[in-house]
Design a binder for these strands. Structure first.
Length: 902
DNA sequence: CAGTGAGCGAGCTTCCGCTTGACTT
């Protein structure tokens, strides 16, 4: 029987809508995007792979035409959708009504190629009337909106896939750059620079406790605290009067309004001079206090509050919320909207009446306009699901799900409650010191007379010192002219603090305010910059690694427009224009990629970076130039370089501990590290023969042992060294092993021709050496074990030209349909590969020796053949190749070190 | 950042936004 096929984005949504639409409709989901630009080389179709733009999968020379593929994990789902479409007489594309949703609808249309009528259907809340109304009022796909999405997608691809390789070449392999992650990293790095440049200021004031005596009346407390406010009419300086340089800010030259900066002696003498002072109330100012409820949750505010109150990371918050959503407890959790549906407003109001009484219920429902500038509002706010809310106790939930549900429920209910109201009072108390100075103290109070929504929900704060919205401070009921006495007057010292590091929650908040990122990506942005080793977490703080300083500096110097804080906001404006048909996608992408007028395009920026100063980018001076100390971001992590004992530049080096935050690397700390570069080294004891201390430490080529030469050793003396075997580790290597390593090379014996054969460890592993003739050994242990006879046997063989010739195939697959040659699988230096004897092709990520078939092998070899025969090695080419190989080999351990941090 | 000698099948890394399981620990 024919049905109408409805496709939405989320499976949960599909189930729900299916229930509303009833018989005659089959509702399925797309599970997000169904097509995308290929992620990597393995997913890139062969026909575009060899194009100059194949790596981008965007034909930059022909209208930025994108080449989409159905990702591997979506193929079976597409088959399923096609199957359902076969029996359908109508197709409804009911994806979200935003840029991405419109694009998904179009991709579905383009991929499913339906032969039945197609309609676009949209709705913003999942209620039966809304769904039925949407089904009654379909529209067409908005191609301008699709164009805007494609422009966004292509721009992000060009940005990410053009700029990342610059970092691979200039900083470290495997790094990444992107419109969102690079700005997020920059925020963290810039904040650290601010902290490093920050100079603390010390200032003092007086804290007094006053006694209102009989004047206070009966309602309030008798005793109350106050802080010194003015001395002889001049305001006493407080934290906000100081700049980041630790000096008083100059209030535009007006001397009379300049605050007075008290130091400790001044504060102490002033306190002493106030011991006999009598005080009177100079003024009492009372103002009404009013606070409105917070808007219902959207993704970012939920992540922030769950972080503050429940200690959940953004990622945990999202996964707990996902489970709540899937089980029907809350509405969709990836949203930028704070709008509640009519049903939700009614449910919240009903709950307010039930739980708090109608005096807490405003006459009219409250509405919340979006604060998010680029909000797309495809969903509701995050709220308890349903037309009537379950209290947390009624849900039967436990653990994190319970706690998160409770938070969402409280926030939603509170959003439909009355304002909190009260009075805030500011009191000034004056007196004359023994020195004749007139002093005024200030006291502030806040009384909440009607708690309103605060009874249900109070937002957390990021700053532990900040007052919560429901905090009350009661003062006695004082009148102007009342006499009060001071129970105590105490000098109190303070210091200004550097700006705080970002936490996940505050970084996400900052990104949202700058229109960077989307609800579905906020949590993963943090994940990306942590995984790349740009940022690590210390408690809840996000600390930038030195690597991030290097990368951000490169981007700021060479891609200033792309990494500017405003880039995304400007892009959003352009996308809006494309969506409205006012601008053209190709023109905009061309400007971004090729440039126009005085704007340089991305392409020429990238191409112009041949002689970029990688060393300079990685060097950060510590202290002043005379100190000659700098931090360098090396391939092996950050290290310090400073003058040697003889004053030679870069004469000394020292590792910087991985977990030392950049702002703690002061000049003093740097000097200390340079003076004791020992760092990781471990003493193993004294060498039984030389009597010298033997230490194990990490070096350029990995872990090794060496002798420590005495201070008075002649300059020509060289310490013996030896790399650890792969089977050894720095933590466990023994003195005995070290002595053996230091004894290398070992003389195995004398060959028949009179030449000595030695065994040792080198750049490419263990090997034998006879004059200039060397042979690799299979195992490191052979360096100590191999006998002269065995060594002679090795030399009796001709030198192996590569390992390929001698290794046995792992698997034989049969004859190649093209060359007719047998294809075999072999294990090689770069991993497993297939070969027909002439051409070799490495297995790809998804291939394995077990699973590979003759067909797949033939395909790989065909691809390889298409690239032509291996180039004849000219001397120049060989040299270039060698360097490249060396680089990769060296880089490998770095990646490990970086990922270890996370 | 310790200096020690070959000659080898390269190929891949990466973006941002939509969505969930399917994987393994």
């Amino acid at each position: 029987m024919a049905h109408k096929l409805v496709i939405v984005e989320s499976p949960t949504k599909a189930t729900k809508i299916g229930g509303y639409l009833g018989a005659g409709y089959v509702v399925e989901s797309s599970i997000g995007h169904i097509r995308d630009l290929p992620n990597n080389a393995a997913d890139t179709p062969a026909k575009i792979k060899d194009k100059p733009w194949g790596r981008l999968a965007v034909d930059v020379d022909n209208g930025f035409e994108p080449y989409y593929v159905v990702p591997r994990d979506k193929k079976s789902h597409i088959t399923k959708l096609k199957q359902l479409l076969k029996d359908a007489d109508e197709l409804y594309l009911a994806t979200d009504e935003d840029r991405e949703g419109e694009a998904i609808a179009w991709h579905l249309l383009d991929e499913l190629k339906p032969k039945v009528p197609v309609k676009r259907m949209v709705f913003h809340e999942i209620t039966k009337p809304a769904i039925l109304a949407a089904a009654e009022n379909p529209r067409d796909i908005d191609m301008d909106l699709v164009e805007a999405q494609e422009a966004r997608r292509i721009l992000d691809r060009l940005y990410g896939y053009e700029v990342s390789p610059v970092l691979w070449r200039k900083v470290m392999s495997g790094l990444s750059a992107g419109r969102v992650q690079s700005v997020a990293t920059r925020l963290v790095v810039d904040r650290e620079w601010e902290r490093m440049a920050f100079r603390s200021a010390s200032y003092w004031d007086l804290e007094a406790t006053f006694d209102a005596g009989a004047a206070g009346g009966d309602s309030g407390p008798r005793m109350f605290p106050a802080r010194l406010h003015t001395v002889d009419g001049a305001r006493v300086a407080s934290g906000r009067d100081f700049g980041t340089d630790g000096l008083l800010k100059d209030p535009a030259g007006r001397a009379e309004s300049r605050p007075v900066h008290l130091d400790r002696p001044r504060a102490e003498s002033l306190a002493a001079a106030l011991s006999d002072t009598t005080y009177d109330v100079r003024s009492v100012e009372s103002k009404p206090y009013r606070r409105s409820p917070y808007a219902p949750f959207r993704t970012t505010t939920l992540q922030q509050e769950a972080g503050r109150k429940l200690g959940m990371s953004a990622q945990v918050t999202m996964s707990v919320a996902q489970r709540l959503y899937e089980n029907g407890f809350i509405t969709y959790m990836r949203t930028d909207s704070t709008t509640l549906s009519g049903a939700a407003v009614n449910a919240a109001r009903e709950q307010v009446r039930e739980l708090y009484g109608s005096e807490y219920l405003p006459d009219a429902p409250r509405t919340y306009a979006s604060k998010v500038k680029n909000a797309q509002e495809a969903h509701e706010a995050i709220r308890p699901a349903g037309d009537s809310f379950r209290t947390p106790a009624q849900t039967g939930l436990t653990g994190d799900q319970f706690r998160l549900y409770e938070l969402i429920w409280m926030r939603t209910v509170a959003s439909q409650m009355k304002d909190a109201t009260g009075q805030s009072v500011s009191v000034r108390i004056g007196g004359t010191a023994a020195t004749g100075e007139d002093v005024v103290f200030a006291a502030g109070g806040r009384v909440i007379t009607f708690h309103g929504f605060l009874k249900a929900y109070v937002e957390g704060t990021d700053d532990a010192a900040a007052a919560r919205d429901d905090q009350e401070t009661r003062l006695p009921a004082l009148q102007e002219g009342d006499a009060v006495t001071a129970a105590s007057v105490t000098p109190s010292g303070h210091e200004t603090k550097p700006p705080s590091r970002y936490t996940e929650a505050t970084l996400i908040k900052e990104l949202e305010e700058r229109e960077i990122g989307r609800p579905s990506t906020y949590a993963s942005i943090i994940g990306t910059i942590v995984n790349r080793g740009y940022v690590y977490k210390k408690g809840t703080a996000l600390v930038p690694a030195w690597l991030a300083f290097s990368v951000v500096r490169l981007l700021v110097e060479h891609f200033p427009r792309q990494i500017s804080y405003e880039f995304t906001a400007r892009m959003e404006d352009v996308l809006d224009d494309i969506a409205a048909g006012r601008r053209d996608r190709v023109t905009e992408l061309a400007e971004f990629y090729f440039g126009s007028g005085d704007v340089e395009g991305l392409k020429s920026l990238v191409e112009g970076l041949g002689d970029i100063d990688a060393k300079g980018l990685a060097t950060f001076p510590i202290g002043s130039p005379e100190d000659g100390i700098s931090l360098r971001v090396g391939k092996y992590g950050p290290y310090l370089e400073g003058p040697g004992d003889d004053g030679a530049p870069a004469g000394k080096r020292a590792n910087v501990p991985d977990d030392l935050p950049p702002d703690e690397l002061t000049l003093e700390k740097a000097k200390e590290l340079l003076a004791n570069p020992a760092g990781e080294e471990r003493s193993l004891g004294r060498h039984p023969e030389s009597g010298l201390e033997v230490v194990a430490k990490n070096g350029r080529f990995g872990p090794y042992v060496t002798e420590v030469l005495p201070e008075d050793a002649p300059k020509s003396a060289k310490a013996r060294t030896g790399s650890l075997f792969k089977s050894m580790s720095l933590d466990t290597v023994t003195l005995e092993q070290a002595v053996q390593l230091l004894s290398l090379p070992r003389v195995v014996g004398v060959a028949t021709d009179g030449e000595e054969i030695t065994a040792q460890n080198g750049r490419y592993g263990p090997y034998l050496k006879k004059g200039s003739d060397s042979r690799s050994l299979a195992a490191e242990d052979q360096i100590f074990d191999i006998t002269l006879d065995e060594a002679l046997a090795i030399y009796a063989q001709p030198k192996a030209r590569g390992r390929g010739a001698s290794t046995a195939p792992l698997k034989e697959l049969g004859n190649d349909p093209v060359s007719g040659q047998p294809i075999v699988v072999k294990a090689g230096r770069f991993g497993e590969y297939v070969t027909d004897g002439e051409y070799n092709a490495t297995l790809r990520k998804d291939d394995s020796v077990e699973s590979i078939t003759l067909e797949r092998a033939a395909e790989l070899l065909e691809e390889r053949r298409a690239k032509g025969p291996a180039k004849k090695t000219s001397p120049k080419k060989t040299a270039a190749k060698k360097t490249a190989a060396k680089k990769t080999a060296k880089k490998a351990p770095v990646k490990k070190a970086a990922s270890k941090k996370s």
